[in-house]
Simulated scan of single mutants.
Amino acid sequence: MTIAPTGRRESRNGTEYVVFHRRFAAPVEDVWAAVTEPERLERWIGTWTGDPATGEVTFTMTAEGPDTPEERYVVEECAPPRRLVVRFADPSEGSGPDWVLELDLDDSEGFTTLAFAQAMPDAETASSVGPGWDYYLDRLVVAERGDDPGELDYEQYAADQSEYYRSAFS
């Protein structure tokens, strides 16, 4: 079975983004907790440490194994339970593009929709990041359903979706 890509290209203030949507039968506060609280986040992607009030946190992607390095993120905007914007901040990266992630939550009629967006600098980056976010956001859905996100296979997402995302940003 082929896993269809869900991300779409969108221009925001002159910057190209890949944007994904996921819908949950849960209150907005619950979905906010799933994408911001370290213990809930760890079920599907990773965890963070630090004090967001300082404007920075350290994030570790636990879903990729024990040897994944920590990453520093700058909190650009945080308006619970509706909007979170973070930027990957690694000084060793030099002059490469920032990884800006935007999460927006909207609730209506008992459902909450998560709109997740990442600034996308080029087609080659999109070919791996697009399938990656489809995979991780599906892990979020599975975890919130109470099932095991470990049953999803990233390699299948990459095989089925890489060319779609490469083409969308060419």
Rank of each mutant, 00 (worst) to 15 (best):
159 A>H: 13
24 F>Y: 05
112 T>W: 05
80 P>R: 03
31 V>L: 15
144 E>C: 12
5 P>N: 10
157 Y>E: 11
166 R>L: 12
41 L>A: 07
30 D>P: 00
124 E>S: 08
91 P>W: 06
90 D>A: 01
32 W>H: 12
85 V>S: 06
37 E>A: 15
4 A>E: 15
144 E>T: 08
140 L>H: 03
19 V>F: 09
132 G>L: 07
107 D>S: 10
48 W>D: 08
98 D>Y: 09
51 D>N: 06
135 Y>H: 02
139 R>S: 05
29 E>I: 00
62 T>M: 10
133 W>S: 01
43 R>W: 14
103 L>Q: 14
19 V>A: 07
62 T>A: 08
66 P>W: 03
154 Y>V: 05
2 T>I: 15
170 S>L: 14
67 D>N: 07
64 E>Y: 09
134 D>M: 01
1 M>K: 13
117 A>C: 09
160 D>P: 00
95 S>K: 14
34 A>N: 03
139 R>D: 05
105 L>V: 02
86 V>D: 00
64 E>V: 01
125 T>I: 13
88 F>M: 15
152 L>E: 04
105 L>P: 04
110 G>H: 03
129 V>N: 10
30 D>S: 06
18 V>R: 04
166 R>E: 12
115 A>E: 13
54 T>Y: 01
103 L>Y: 06
85 V>I: 15
118 Q>Y: 03
33 A>E: 15
137 L>C: 04
48 W>T: 07
48 W>F: 13
143 A>M: 09
110 G>E: 03
44 W>H: 11
33 A>Q: 14
26 A>N: 02
43 R>M: 15
1 M>V: 12
80 P>L: 03
87 R>H: 03
158 A>S: 11
4 A>Y: 14
106 D>F: 12
73 Y>F: 14
127 S>Q: 05
17 Y>N: 00
162 S>L: 07
103 L>M: 15
75 V>E: 01
17 Y>G: 00
149 P>V: 09
77 E>S: 06
114 L>P: 06
129 V>F: 14
100 V>W: 11
58 T>I: 14
160 D>R: 05
130 G>C: 09
138 D>K: 08
42 E>D: 15
63 A>M: 07
50 G>V: 02
25 A>R: 06
82 R>G: 01
169 F>W: 10
61 M>K: 06
148 D>N: 13
32 W>P: 10
55 G>L: 02
131 P>M: 06
80 P>W: 03
